[in-house]
Design a protein around this nucleic acid. Structure first.
Length: 304
DNA sequence: GTTTTAGAATTGACGGAGTC
DNA sequence: GACTCCGTCAATTCTAAAAC
């Protein structure tokens, strides 16, 4: 077991949730992913051993070794793996997703949550989803409307890719029917808006954009994902869902839900492609870490 | 009541890992 | 080589208690 509270699984189990990537002509699973988790746990255990009483310790001293306590990578890994490897996986997922999206999936051709979470379900952490080519083309020809710093604009000469791939925090994928969930997890931080060449692009819009794109060229099973059958799920502390105005994502998410057309403002390259914005809006969901804990008490053991 | 000061929070620069 | 995301570090700004 890697850590009793923050990662109660062994290395092999964790490794199985990293998608294969294309390296030297073959799809390979990268073992290096484990290092981040192992180092963080080692720092934490070492600090707690040397400092059994932390009361009154300076913040600066604890920040690095205690990062694990607010690290969304650990929160999402433990939370999702707990559900994924649970005996009652299908019931637990159904409960959570009914709460977020309603009693039946907002997807054409799939009539129950049971179908979504049937056999051949995969869970991946940090998969890379390429930026849509339609967006990159649009950005090339609209650059000066989206960025105004001269040296940044100058650097785009001869550059083909104006946006790199988006790393989503986690993805659930049913490789049999193409159903998938793109998951963005937050602990304390807000969504990022620092996109080099597009000052108006936010992280939720980016996640929705990559969700709507086919990934035929990715390694199996990521190539089996159907963009029309993919949902977007935001997971945050209950505190911020109850007080949405404390975060940018609170404003953006609620705007996308109450006014689906507002999505077209943040995804301007999809303007003319007959997007069904109400349908896309219905595929956005927001759950809290506390929701996961109430369905399976072993999720988020660090929460009271 | 005002100034000083220590600690905390914020910000920007930058580096590493992973990926394409 | 360039991108994202996560992290550190140092500089700066803010806050509130202590000192005057």
């Amino acid at each position: 077991m890697m850590h009793p509270i923050y990662l109660p699984f062994n290395e092999k189990e964790l490794l199985s949730h990293f998608a294969e990537v294309w390296q030297n002509g073959v799809c390979t699973r990268n073992v290096k992913h484990l290092e981040y988790y192992k180092c963080s746990i080692e720092r934490y255990d070492g600090y707690l051993k040397d400092n059994p009483n932390r009361r009154g310790k300076p913040l600066e001293e604890m920040r690095k070794p205690c990062q694990i306590e607010k690290d969304e990578r650990f929160w999402i890994a433990t939370c999702m793996m707990t559900i994924f490897h649970s005996q009652n996986r299908r019931q637990e997922l159904t409960k959570l997703f009914s709460n977020a999206y309603g009693n039946s999936p907002p997807i054409g051709g799939i009539y129950s949550w049971g179908e979504c979470f049937a056999e051949e379900l995969h869970l991946f952490f940090e998969p890379n989803l390429p930026s849509p080519s339609s967006y990159k083309e649009w950005l090339s020809s609209n650059l000066i409307k989206r960025q105004f710093i001269p040296y940044v604009l100058d650097s785009t000469d001869a550059k083909v890719n104006l946006e790199g791939p988006t790393n989503v925090d986690a993805m659930l994928l049913n490789s049999k029917n193409g159903f998938a969930v793109v998951i963005e997890a937050k602990v304390l931080s807000d969504i990022s808006y620092e996109i080099t060449y597009d000052t108006m692009r936010n992280q939720i819009a980016r996640n929705i954009d990559v969700m709507l794109e086919k990934n035929n060229k990715l390694c199996h099973p990521l190539d089996k994902r159907d963009p029309e059958k993919t949902l977007f799920l935001l997971i945050t502390p209950k505190l911020f869902k109850d007080n949405p105005s404390s975060r940018l994502y609170g404003y953006k998410f609620n705007e996308y839900k109450t006014n689906p057309e507002s999505l077209s403002g943040d995804l301007p390259h999809r303007h003319r492609t007959n997007c069904d914005w109400p349908n896309i809006s219905s595929r956005l969901g927001w759950l809290t870490w506390e929701d996961f804990k109430s369905v399976n008490n072993n999720c988020c053991r660090w929460l009271k």
